[in-house]
């Protein structure tokens, strides 16, 4: 990888200051960024490591009942500490990558990167979560803006993600066995005011809400309510692992499985 200056701030304030450098890039757990640097797909002049900032690590319940997860919290810690509060989210975290990856990778890093096949974006969108940064709060519906694209401004850091806890939820991932990313994954969350269904791994635009299924499941929360349904294959990803039509089919199947598992 190309040389860069590494900064390891101990406070969020110092991290924000370091991010003001030209061509600065935040480094979460590095499980995507470090391989990208090795491949010279990224060449930041300054890398700002967020893993030494104690105030950005941990899980708590907000006054409104939301599960609040610090941006630099690892997947492994989410799997452990969220299990009692939001089991479907903890289970999602436990299925990311492998144990060593989960011990480094962070929720903030995953959500900032917005890989079209990452697991977390589906939970964030299906939960109607709030992305908290050093400057503002961003609703999940406004945050994801396409493959590897988000509402984050240059220099902005995800400090926390706040998840309203649903009455029922489940995440079902059809795993690509080599990478352990989602070939397609569906997160279903049922709230008092309706059901939200978010799909990852399937669409060229990245994570998206399947509104037809949301309407049907909000009327009746049962797999039979969406029997035979699948989203349009237009805009789905075709690659060596599967065609657009295959992924569209998977979305229907996995959504039904998620409803049954919720």
């Amino acid at each position: 990888m190309y040389a860069f200056d590494l900064v390891r701030p101990a406070t969020l304030a110092d991290a924000v200051a370091a991010m003001a450098h030209d061509e600065a890039q935040a480094l979460g757990g590095g499980q995507t960024l470090i391989p990208s640097l090795k491949a010279r797909l990224a060449s930041p002049a300054t890398l700002v490591s967020l893993t030494g900032i104690a105030e950005m690590v941990g899980v708590c319940r907000g006054d409104d009942g939301a599960v609040c997860i610090g941006g630099a919290t690892t997947h492994a810690q989410v799997a452990r500490d969220v299990a009692a509060h939001y089991p479907a989210l903890a289970k999602l975290a436990l299925g990311i990558g492998d144990p060593a990856v989960r011990n480094r990778g962070t929720i903030g890093g995953s959500v900032a990167n917005n890989d079209p096949a990452a697991c977390y974006p589906s939970a964030v969108l299906a939960s109607g979560a709030t992305i908290v940064t050093n400057t503002r709060h961003i609703a999940a519906d406004d945050y994801f803006q396409g493959m590897f694209t988000t509402a984050l401004e240059p220099g902005e850091i995800i400090t926390e993600v706040r998840f309203p806890v649903p009455m029922q939820a489940a995440y079902i991932k059809f795993e690509q066995p080599a990478s352990r990313f989602a070939l397609t994954g569906v997160f279903v969350a049922r709230y008092a005011d309706g059901v939200r269904v978010a799909v990852t791994g399937a669409a060229e635009q990245g994570v998206f809400r399947w509104s037809d299924a949301e309407a049907a499941l909000s009327a009746q929360f049962a797999a039979s309510a969406i029997a035979g349904m699948a989203p349009d294959a237009d805009g789905m990803i075709t690659d060596l692992h599967g065609t657009a039509a295959y992924r569209a089919h998977l979305v229907g199947v996995l959504t039904r499985r998620a409803v049954e598992a919720a």
């Binding site: 480094l27 470090i34 144990p99 060593a100 480094r104």
Partner: peptide, 9 residues
């Protein structure tokens, strides 16, 4: 904790 030392600075 187990980590992949090729993917940590």
């Amino acid at each position: 904790r187990a980590v992949k030392s090729c993917t940590m600075l």
